[in-house]
């Protein structure tokens, strides 16, 4: 293993890791927004809205994220959507992970015992009040860990944007292989950096989960 090479190129990989973190944060935020809207749609009183929610989930979970990204980035201009690679990456992957988060959030909400909303309604709370004050606070606690699984997948999923030339970790590794012919070292370095990002995120999620856990 060429340790000297690794020591020479690692600052560039750190820069690329920052881009991966940015991509992760932005796609996760967008995903959380899409997930909340999707879950609200899936649980709507109106069947048409429920249908929209279900359609969103099945389309985005039923096709490869890479194809979605290609449609947006390469196909977009054809229908008047001009995005640079980073923007396309954020939007494409954010909307994609949102479909998974929709199901996570919906699952957490429906797993709160129905008796909870019932007890709240019995006291005279409206549907909205019962949801906000009783169901949601419990559902939020239940969704932290499964959302953590989505987030873990998403951080790794940012590697896909290498395919549309966003200069993040995976793309950077590929580029340095082109000039150094040392794929083992370059991919290993990228892998270690992914591992660090994911480990820190995982610890943070466990911490959050512990913070809000009930006695």
């Amino acid at each position: 293993m060429d340790i000297d090479l690794i020591l020479r190129v690692y600052p560039y990989f750190l820069e690329a890791a920052v881009v991966t973190v940015e991509l992760s944060v932005l796609t996760i935020l967008l995903g959380l927004i899409c997930g909340a809207l999707g879950a609200a749609a899936r649980l709507s009183r109106f069947s048409f809205v429920r249908f929209l929610g279900a359609a969103y989930v099945s389309v985005f979970r039923g096709t490869p994220a890479l194809i979605q990204l290609f449609i947006l980035y390469f196909g977009g201009p054809q229908i008047g959507i001009q995005l640079d690679a980073f923007e396309a990456g954020v939007i494409g992957l954010g909307v994609n992970i949102g479909a998974y988060m929709t199901e996570t959030m919906r699952g957490a909400i429906i797993s709160v015992d129905h008796g909870q909303a019932e007890a709240a309604r019995t006291l005279g709370l409206s549907r909205v009040q019962a949801f906000q004050k009783v169901v949601l606070p419990q559902a939020m606690r239940l969704m932290i860990r499964p959302l953590g699984v989505n987030i873990n997948a998403q951080i790794k999923g940012t590697a896909l944007v290498a395919a549309i030339s966003v200069v993040e970790l995976t793309y950077t590794a590929q580029r340095y292989i082109g000039s150094t012919y040392k794929p083992f070292e370059m991919f290993l370095l990228a892998g270690v950096l992914y591992l660090i990002i994911i480990t820190i995120t995982g610890k943070f999620i466990s911490y959050l989960d512990r913070r809000v856990r009930l006695p």
């Binding site: 015992d113 008796g115 909870q116 019932e118 007890a119 709240a120 019995t122 009783v134 606070p137 419990q138 606690r141 009930l214």
Partner: peptide
């Protein structure tokens, strides 16, 4: 007022 078999207290 209503009281249920399984209490349905708000655990949070």
């Amino acid at each position: 007022g209503m009281v249920f078999q399984h209490f349905n207290l708000f655990p949070h």
